[in-house]
Amino acid sequence: MKRSITLDVNGATRTTEVEPRALLASVLRDQLDLTGTHIGCDTSQCGACTVLLDGRAVKSCTVLAVQAEGKQITTIEGLSGDGRLHPLQQAFWEKHGLQCGFCTPGMILTAVDLLSQNPTPSEAEIRHALEGNLCRCTGYQNIVAAIQSAAGALR
C-alpha cells in the first residue's frame, strides 16, 4: 500500500514511505518532523500550511505527498540559514506582523511568492495576495506593513 517517495526539502534529499492518500502537510509534519508547517483547516482556506513547491506557494494540505515526488520544497524552516533571517521574517518581526504566530509561516511563504512575481505591490495587491491566508490576531494591517517593508528591503 505504502510507496517510497523522494523529495528535496529545504535543500536536503529526503526519502520516506507514504500512503498514496497522505497529504504533503501531514508528511512534512509527522514524518519529516518539520512542524513549522501548520494545519489550521481542512478546506484549503486558512493557508497556515503554505509551503513553496518549486518556488511557488501552495497549500500543502491540498497537495498529495506523492504529487511532490521529485520536486523542491521549501518550508519555513528552510527559508533562511546561517542564523540570519530572510527579509520577510525580519520585517514581520520589526512591523509586529504576528501575534500568536500560528499563521505566520504560511503568511511569510505566500509573501515570498508574491514578491518574487511583483516586487512593488500596492497595499491592495498585497491584501488580494493574502486572500488564502487567514489571521485571527493582527487584523492584517501590520502584516501588510511588513510585506511592504520587506519589498523595500529586497529591492
Binding site: 513549522g36 519555513i76 533571517l85 521574517q89 518581526w93 504576528l98
Partner: peptide, 8 residues
C-alpha cells in the same frame, strides 16, 4: 518572534 517567524 524569532522562534515564531522561523517555524521553531
Amino acid at each position: 518572534d524569532p522562534r515564531l517567524v522561523t517555524g521553531r
